[in-house]
Design a protein around this nucleic acid. Structure first.
Length: 497
RNA sequence: GACCCUGUAGUGCAGCGGUUAGCACGUCGCCCUUUCAAGGCGAAGAUCGAGGGUUCGAAUCCCUCCAGGGUUACCA
């Protein structure tokens, strides 16, 4: 017995951008290949010409690239194989394993209604199915339009397969309808093309969403009719919205699109980590995974069977996506090697127009940049925070959080004067460092008979515009004496008008 | 309607015949020489969808029901 080479594919249809469910399916295929070795193929299922667009294809590739899920072959366009698909359909027809269905859409609709009325399931176009070969040929020759449908075997037979996640699956032939292979215009349909292409590409393992679990039986019928051995199948539980409905851009907005996560400052590795945790577990308590760790731990046996919900709020911006995703991103940002993070922060600052050449690799402020990023990352959640909450570190001007001003400055009437005084104390420090700054600040607090916290909160707000960030004295040292003094000296008018 | 899949805290997962039913996110509280969305400690939160069995013993096995999801397209 020979074990065929492992060949898996991700086959999205370009009827939309890459959504989180698709991203997760791609990730699992990718992990499978990385873990066991093999070839990862990308195939674009563009058989529905009405809904497929090049823009969507582009955005899918973009999403995949950002996610770091590189493929070995492709992208292949399914539509390139149409002639082959048609040929196979004709073979099936010639072998008597498929038949021409002359019913129009309206006929079918009537048949279905009738079946419904009689409380029996509609499964096939019985009139066409009963046609003799001669009559069928004659009507086709006359130019009458027809659909080619698969002739599902009768009798008590069943299709059986062992799913890598859901276990043994069985479906009686009588529960499967005579699904269509080719439309009247000759274009092929999904269940048929998938099988043609998977055979053609020698796919060994099909890992895809659970919405295809039922389709698998039809596909197996096709493999059997074509005399081919079906691949191994593994289906993944679906990812739904908080209301348990399918994720859709129209209903749920940008949160379902993979590229949104890129645009909102996610780190690819963190997002992979999050995606992996939906519907999969290593079987241990471990949840933080670098990608090599993920590959090592990955196994189909860890995939769960229940559909999952990705939790997000459409009204609370702090919860625009699942908190766990956000948490994982913060964690990865904190724990990843600093040298890997620096280019990402650089890119973010550049796109925000805040980049300064002296911070570049060979720049004279590189060391400062590196230390500051290191300081800031402990409390940041996404890359966006470097240009947002961290703006005061990278730009002369920075927005003020009115709430911070209210809470940390305006609550104490004389605080503004005290901060100006603090500025002159700081100015006099010969060697401005976090320790010397702290000594000076606490000394002033003592003299004034006030809590150091007041000055701490106040100077944080004045120097950074926000109420959260790194420990104050670290922050002051990073900003540097001149900047700190200048900003504090402005305390009287800070945040006014 | 038919066929199929699933059902453990708000969410994601552990658990596979004997545990005070674990972990993480989130929530709440306390601590961090009175910053903070970081860190530390702690708490609340699950009659394991419901009801019947089997068993000395069931979240774990069986049956029924219920709920959610998928398929039932000349969508994918």
């Amino acid at each position: 017995m020979t074990t065929p080479a492992i060949r898996v594919r991700f086959a999205p249809s370009p009827t939309g951008y890459l959504h989180v469910g698709g991203g997760r399916t791609a990730l699992f295929n990718w992990l499978f290949v990385k873990k066991y070795g093999g070839t990862f193929i990308l195939r674009i299922e563009d058989t529905d010409k009405e809904r497929s667009t090049d823009d969507n294809t582009k955005s899918i590739l973009e999403g995949l690239k950002w996610l770091g899920l590189d493929w070995d072959e492709g992208p292949f366009l399914q539509s390139d194989g149409v002639e082959h698909h048609k040929r196979v359909a004709r073979e099936l027809l010639a072998m008597g394993k498929a038949y021409r269905s002359f019913a129009t859409a309206a006929d079918l609709e009537a048949q279905r209604k009738q079946a419904d009325h009689e409380k029996r399931p509609w499964q096939r176009d019985a009139p066409s199915r009963a046609l003799s070969t001669e009559e069928s040929d004659a009507r086709a020759a006359k130019g009458e339009p027809f659909t080619i449908r698969f002739l599902v075997p009768g009798g008590e037979g069943a299709t059986v397969f062992e799913d890598g996640v859901y276990g043994s699956q069985e479906r009686k032939h009588k529960d499967t309808e005579d699904f269509a292979l080719l439309r009247p215009d000759g274009s092929p349909l999904y269940n048929f093309v998938v099988v043609c292409d998977d055979i053609h590409m020698k796919i060994s393992h099909v890992i895809r969403g659970q919405d295809h679990l039922s389709n698998t039986h039809k596909q197996i019928l096709l493999y059997e009719a074509l005399g081919k051995k079906p691949p191994e199948f593994a289906h993944l539980p679906l990812i739904n919205a908080p209301d348990r409905s399918k994720l859709s851009k129209r209903k749920h907005g940008e949160v379902v699109s993979v590229t949104t996560y890129r645009d909102k400052g996610f780190i690819p590795e963190a997002f992979r980590n999050f995606l992996a945790l939906i519907g999969w577990s290593s079987g241990t308590d471990k949840e933080f995974f670098t990608t090599p760790e993920l590959i090592e731990a990955f196994s189909l046996s860890g995939v769960s069977r229940g559909n999952a919900i990705v939790n997000f709020s459409e009204t609370d911006p702090r919860q625009w996506t699942d908190r766990k995703a956000l948490h994982l991103n913060a964690e990865h940002m904190n724990r990843m090697p600093l040298e890997d993070l620096l280019p990402m922060v650089e890119a973010e600052l550049k796109s925000a127009g805040l980049w300064n050449a002296s911070w570049a690799k060979a720049g004279d402020r590189r060391e400062w940049f590196s230390r500051t990023v290191d300081l800031l990352r402990a409390r940041f959640i996404t890359l966006k925070d470097f240009s947002g909450a961290g703006r005061a570190f990278f730009d002369k001007t920075y927005p003020l959080d009115p709430l911070a001003v209210e809470k940390n400055i305006d609550k104490v009437p004389s605080l503004r004067e005290w901060l100006v005084e603090l500025a002159s104390r700081f100015k006099a420090i010969p060697d401005f460092k976090k320790d010397s700054a702290e000594v000076e600040l606490r000394k002033l607090a003592d003299e004034l008979g006030i809590k150091a916290g007041l000055l701490i909160n106040g100077s944080r707000t004045v120097t950074t515009g926000v109420s959260v960030g790194p420990p104050l004295f670290d922050l002051l040292e990073s900003l540097g004496q001149d900047t700190v003094v200048a900003r504090l000296a402005n305390a009287l008018t800070f945040g006014k008008g």
